[in-house]
């Protein structure tokens, strides 16, 4: 049985993945982050978590991915019985209103434009961590 991450992150850009990982490490070292680069792998992995009934606490989805897009993954997640209650945050460089609208329509719990630069990301993640993992522990 593989360990289930706290945060499941789908990101094809290794740079941003690295930066984010670094930032999370800085916030709370023991927070487990799993990064998948490809949409299909992500869905397979999520299915596996679902089968094992061992779910991640938060899913972060990049919007623009090769193959299946973030929206495709979102749609699949929201159709899977066990997974659909996991909070999903769309995490994208795009601030296109159409993308935002579509994301919410497909059931995203939040739409966050990727912060620009490490410092902004750190601030953003700190707030997010505070909200999702500390203040609302009960939710999880």
């Amino acid at each position: 049985m593989m360990s289930t991450p706290d945060i499941f992150y789908v990101e094809d850009d290794p740079d941003y993945a690295f930066i984010l990982q670094t930032a999370i490490g800085e916030i709370q070292e023991e927070l487990k982050l799993s990064i998948v680069e490809d949409g299909r792998d992500a869905i397979d992995q999520l299915r596996l978590f679902s089968d094992e009934k061992n779910l991640p606490k938060l899913i972060l989805l990049d919007l623009n991915l090769p193959g299946l897009s973030g929206l495709d993954i979102l749609k699949t997640i929201k159709e899977m019985p066990h997974l659909k209650y996991i909070p999903v945050i769309l995490f994208s460089t795009s601030d296109n209103p159409q993308d935002v609208k579509a994301s919410y329509e497909f059931g995203a719990n939040a739409y966050v434009t990727k912060p620009d630069g490490y410092n902004n990301l750190l601030t953003c993640l700190k707030t997010m961590h505070e909200f999702w993992f500390l203040q609302n522990r009960g939710l999880n």
């Binding site: 850009d13 740079d15 941003y16 930066i19 623009n64 460089t93 795009s94 630069g117 490490y118 990301l121």
Partner: peptide, 17 residues
């Protein structure tokens, strides 16, 4: 423009890091 944002973010992020 969209595609340019990604490497730009990398430049900024690594520099800050």
């Amino acid at each position: 423009s969209h595609d340019l944002r990604t490497p730009l973010t990398a430049i900024k992020s690594y520099t800050e890091l």
